[in-house]
Design a protein around this nucleic acid. Structure first.
Lengths: 250, 250
DNA sequence: TGAATACGTTATGTATACAATAGCGGAGGC
DNA sequence: GCCTCCGCTATTGTATACATAACGTATTCA
């Protein structure tokens, strides 16, 4: 290569993958749109080989769809797809919580979870919650869910939950942001925090069924609220992931 | 290319992926072993580009693991990983059954499931079951599970179940074959068939909770039987997927 | 005028050449 | 004799050239 500036700090494949994901989630590439390799080469700065690797990975991630005749297009999701994805993740997290409860978790392992819980409590004390505090909440909430998943000590399950969270609207942060568009947002966050508290208690007391049930309820609540949020699309800008929703009729 | 014979009926990428998967599941490549691209090029007949694409896909499938310094190795699974994978799939199938029941399924859609059921009944009438009949059973059972998954009408869930079944020991056929090593194999198949019957009945009557519960029980039974089967490894040759189990201590 | 076919252009699939890095082995010094 | 450092080799990461297939357009025939 003569003139192209290459950043050698990360692999070209990873760079291309991140860049393309950004383009998809920011809405630069619209759902259903075909992704041209050549165009991707220009926008990402990598050459065709790493771009193709990135495209394959993004397809596996669920953001792209292979076109039978060749190439890839941005996947389009219906509202139903999105709520199913959330319920799916809730079911998997429920299983993780059950595993954690049934297999036993030491007090030391629960410590980080409880710290998360306390930190979130602190944030929610603000009424109404500030933008900065809400942002911290999103981070802490994602951390709580990740830690809970880890407690299952089941690599196959952890892997699957990670996959289920790859779709941005199915990630903990994703739907929290969607819910924030609702007027009763703060009340929702407080209920969610209550769920968090219950699941930890259930795990501590080795009540697998209760731990599982509360995580599933947690997800069902999220689904209900997402539906409401999608009705009044006033704060749509808060959820860039919605760029993936089918614009055509569903 | 001058001398290399290329089969143009399928893409080189797919050809390489299938060939490599075969090598892994047949045990030619042992768990933990690094896969050399050059070696894969020689054994698959494709060139490095499609081989690399195949490796990425197999990693996403869960058969390979990326090595931090570069390249891929065959993933190794513990017995716990395997039973968790089965329970995981059972949980997802349970959700699929629930969706089917709650969302309603027409009699016409249930027809193929019932045909499967009847065909399996016919096979199980043989005591003891012949090798050929058992082979048909494996196929029909896989078909039943696939049809049931489809009934959920939830693309994200179907996709996730497919992913969970990618690991051969977590596929319907995989653990049926493992169970066949047990002396009470036929009895197990009959109980499984009973589960199939119940889930259809529950879906017909729109009993979501019951449909979900029976599929989870179905998986838990499979886990118990797999554990037993692994104890007396007499018929190990029936389950090539076990090539993936860690040979080292777990 | 419309439809069908053929040709050209463009994009993807494949192969290979080149670059860089990591791992290994040998040699030299402490 | 052992440890360390340097260099070589082997393997992966990247780039690009070439082949092939698909799509669109234009022209011709009915």
């Amino acid at each position: 290569m003569a003139e192209r500036e290459v950043d050698r700090s990360v692999s070209q494949t990873v760079k291309a993958q991140l860049a393309l994901r950004d383009q998809i989630l920011s809405g630069s590439l619209r759902p259903g749109e075909r992704i041209s390799e050549l165009q991707a080469v220009e926008t990402t700065g990598a050459s065709r080989t790493p771009v193709r690797m990135a495209l394959v990975r993004l397809e596996e991630e669920g953001l792209l769809e292979a076109i039978p005749s060749g190439g890839f297009m941005v996947k389009a999701f219906s509202e139903r797809d999105i709520s199913d994805s959330i319920e799916l993740r809730g079911t998997l997290e429920g299983l993780a919580a059950r595993f954690a409860a049934e297999r036993g978790v030491s007090a030391r392992e629960l410590e980080p979870l409880k710290e998360c819980l306390a930190a979130i409590d602190e944030l929610l004390r603000q009424v109404p919650i500030s933008i900065e505090a809400f942002s911290s909440y999103v981070t802490l909430n994602a951390r709580f869910h990740a830690l809970l998943t880890e407690l299952s000590r089941s690599p196959p399950l952890i892997r699957q939950i990670d996959r289920a969270s790859a779709l941005p609207f199915a990630s903990p942060s994703g739907f929290v942001m969607a819910q924030s568009a609702l007027p009763e947002a703060q009340q929702i966050l407080i209920i969610g925090q209550e769920h968090h508290r219950v699941v930890i208690d259930a795990i501590e007391n080795r009540e697998g069924a209760r731990a599982e049930a509360v995580m599933r309820e947690h997800a069902r609540l999220a689904v209900r609220n997402l539906r409401l949020a999608l009705r009044n699309r006033t704060h749509l800008d808060l959820l860039p992931a919605l760029a993936l929703i089918k614009t055509t009729t569903d």
